[in-house]
């Protein structure tokens, strides 16, 4: 069997129905004949499906919060937080303010009264302008 780490990894032929083909990774394999081996290839199609599931879920959450913003139930902070894939504790850590304040900022009424410097900090984290934060482009 030998140590897989000392052999050059095999390049495995690539599959056609792959979603993600940016970078080949190193994987280990085992079978009783060959023992442990290493190979460099793309993630196999089944695993790519579960990566995609997580992106699809993020997209769906974004769509849901977008609707809430449109009917006036959530502020743009909630929308942009989803857009950069954050959750409240992380956004609060970046903002260096408490979680409950971030949560409050997600209420449209409170959002209107946020101080400009806080708004500017949000905009910086979201990588957008303050105007875009005040009025996301999906709002007419």
């Amino acid at each position: 069997m030998g140590n897989p780490d000392n052999k050059a990894p095999d390049k495995v032929t690539d599959d056609k129905d792959l979603i993600y083909t940016y970078n080949r990774e190193l994987f280990y394999h085992f079978d009783r004949e060959k023992g442990f081996t290493q190979a460099v290839h793309y993630q196999n199609p089944d695993n790519q499906v579960i990566i995609k599931q997580s992106w699809d879920a993020a997209e769906q959450r974004l769509e849901e919060v977008k609707q809430l913003v449109l009917i006036g139930k959530a502020s743009p902070v909630a929308y942009y937080m989803e857009k950069i894939l954050m959750e409240v504790p992380m956004l609060a850590a970046y903002m260096e303010i408490s979680k409950w304040r971030v949560k409050r900022h997600m209420k449209p009424g409170v959002f209107k009264k946020i101080k400009p410097e806080i708004l500017a900090r949000y905009a910086e984290i979201f990588e957008i302008s303050v105007d875009q934060l005040r009025k996301p482009d999906f709002i007419k």
Binding site: F27, F30, Q43, I50, I51, S54
Partner: peptide, 20 residues
């Protein structure tokens, strides 16, 4: 499954590496 197969586990949640 994402934790098992994706975030740099070399497959099967590090069980292959450990076997090697």
């Amino acid at each position: 499954l994402r934790m098992e197969e994706e975030v740099g586990t070399a497959g099967a949640g590090f069980r292959f590496i450990y076997g090697a």
